[in-house]
Each structure stands twice: as C-alpha cells, then as structure tokens.
Simulated assay, not measured.
Amino acid sequence: MRLIRSPLALLFTGATGLASLLTLFEVSTPGLSYWALALALYWLALAMTWSVLLARRTGRRTWPPWMFVPLLLVLGTMLLVTVDAPLHARFALSESSLERYARSVRDDEGRDRWRGLYQVGYTEKIPGGARFMVTSLTMNWKSYGFAYIPDRVPGPDEGWYEHFKGPWYIWTDGP
C-alpha cells in the first residue's frame, strides 16, 4: 500500500502528528500556558501549508490518499480536545498518586516533584484537604492546580474552585 510515499507527504503528516501530540499534552492540565501561543502559530503554519498543497491539486479529479491522514489527525485531535479527554485521561492515570500525596501533605512540602503525571508546585494544606499547583503562570496570568477536599464543598470566600470529579476541584489563585 502506498498511502504515504513521498517525502513531502511523510514530512507533513509527521508535522501534523507532532502538532496533535503537543496539543493533547497542552490541554491535559488546567489552564493554557504560554506554549499554547506557539502551538497556535504552528497550527497556522500547517493550515497554510495544507492550503498550498490543496491549491496545487486544483483541477485534478482525485486527491492522493495521504492527504486524508493529516485531516483525520486534526479531526481526532479536535474531538479529543472538545470532550476534554486529555485532561481526564492524564488525571485518571495520576489520581491515586495525587490522592496519596493530598492525604499526607504538609504546607509547601514536596515542591516541584512529580506526582503521577503532574509536576506539583506550590502546595498548601487547607481545612479538610490540600491544594497544589500543577501549572505555572498561564495566558490569563493565573496558576492552576487541583484541590482535594473529600468532606465538604469549598466556600466562595476560600478562593476560586470548579468541581472536577468526586472530591477533586480545579483550583486557581484568582477568579
């Protein structure tokens, strides 16, 4: 089968696959980092290249089969991002480690250590649980993390919390 035969096809498909992987990694943490800007420019360059490749095909009856592979990668990535699958998958793979850590945490203990698939930064013991940052400064000038609060719902005067799942909340240092 000669699905991807030309070097240009292989290069473009590989570049699209890399963009997809980087995008899935970027959205697997709460909040978007500054890397998302570079990633957006990368996607823009890929879209422009795709347009040029399509323009070269104008007037021909068929597209080469390899042109559908990058299209499928883009559509698959868009679907996964839309349903928040990367964040939920990475969290699910890390949840037991994060929970063990949250149950045993003391203030600012274990800074910048890996817990599951997340690098945990600032850590704080709070009434009934713990909270810790997993992203540094993002595009909206905030840091995001998770809060583990199994016995109660955090009040509005305690900071900004969004329920994630079970006893877990996404926490940010500002509204």
Score class of each variant (00 low, 15 high):
Thr29His: 11
Glu109Met: 05
Gly116Asn: 08
Gly116Gln: 06
Thr123Lys: 00
Gly116Ser: 11
Met67Thr: 14
Ala92Arg: 03
Ala40Tyr: 04
Val105Ala: 15
Asp112Val: 04
Leu21Asp: 07
Thr58Phe: 14
Tyr101Met: 12
Leu117Tyr: 10
Ser104Arg: 08
Pro127Cys: 10
Val83His: 04
Leu71Asp: 04
Gly31Thr: 03
Leu53Tyr: 02
Ala19Pro: 06
Arg103Ser: 06
Arg100Met: 08
Ser94Trp: 04
Val83Ala: 09
Leu54Cys: 10
Lys125Asn: 00
Thr49Tyr: 05
Thr62Phe: 13
Arg57Cys: 11
Trp114Gln: 13
Val69Lys: 04
Ala55Ser: 12
Gly128Ile: 01
Leu72Tyr: 05
Asp112Ile: 00
Arg90Asn: 13
Arg131Trp: 01
Leu79Arg: 02
Arg100Tyr: 06
Gly59Pro: 00
Leu80Trp: 03
Pro127Ser: 15
Met67Trp: 02
Trp35Ile: 04
Arg90Thr: 13
Gln119Val: 03
Arg113His: 14
Ser51Ala: 15
Ala19Gly: 13
Arg90Phe: 12
Thr82Gln: 11
Glu124Thr: 05
Asn140Leu: 05
Arg131Gln: 09
Thr77Leu: 12
Lys142Leu: 15
Thr138Tyr: 01
Leu87Pro: 01
Leu87Arg: 02
Gly129Phe: 06
Leu117Trp: 10
Ser97His: 05
Ala47Val: 08
Leu21Gln: 12
Leu21Val: 15
Trp66Gln: 08
Gly121Lys: 07
Pro30Leu: 11
Arg115Ser: 07
Val69Asp: 08
Gly76Ile: 08
Gly121Asp: 11
Tyr42His: 08
Gly121Ala: 15
Gly59Tyr: 04
Ala19Leu: 11
Gly116Glu: 09
Arg90Leu: 14
Gly31Asn: 03
Leu71Ser: 14
Leu80Val: 04
Arg106Asn: 09
Leu98Glu: 00
Thr29Gly: 02
Gly128Arg: 00
Val69Thr: 12
Val83Tyr: 09
Trp66Pro: 02
Ser96Ala: 12
Ala19Asn: 10
Ala36Gln: 03
Arg61Thr: 12
Arg100Glu: 11
Met133Leu: 15
Glu26Ser: 09
Lys142Phe: 01
Ser28Leu: 07
Val105Lys: 01
Val69Glu: 06
Gly14Ser: 15
Arg111Gln: 03
Ser104Asn: 11
Met67Leu: 15
Leu80Glu: 07
Ala130Ile: 02
Tyr144His: 08
Lys125Ala: 09
Leu32Arg: 02
Trp141Asn: 09
Leu22Arg: 08
Gly76Ser: 14
Val27Lys: 01
Gly31Val: 04
Ala47Phe: 13
Gly116Leu: 09
Gly76Glu: 05
Lys125Pro: 02
Leu22Pro: 05
Arg100Leu: 10
Leu73Pro: 03
Thr82Gly: 15
Gly14Met: 13
Val83Met: 14
Leu98Phe: 03
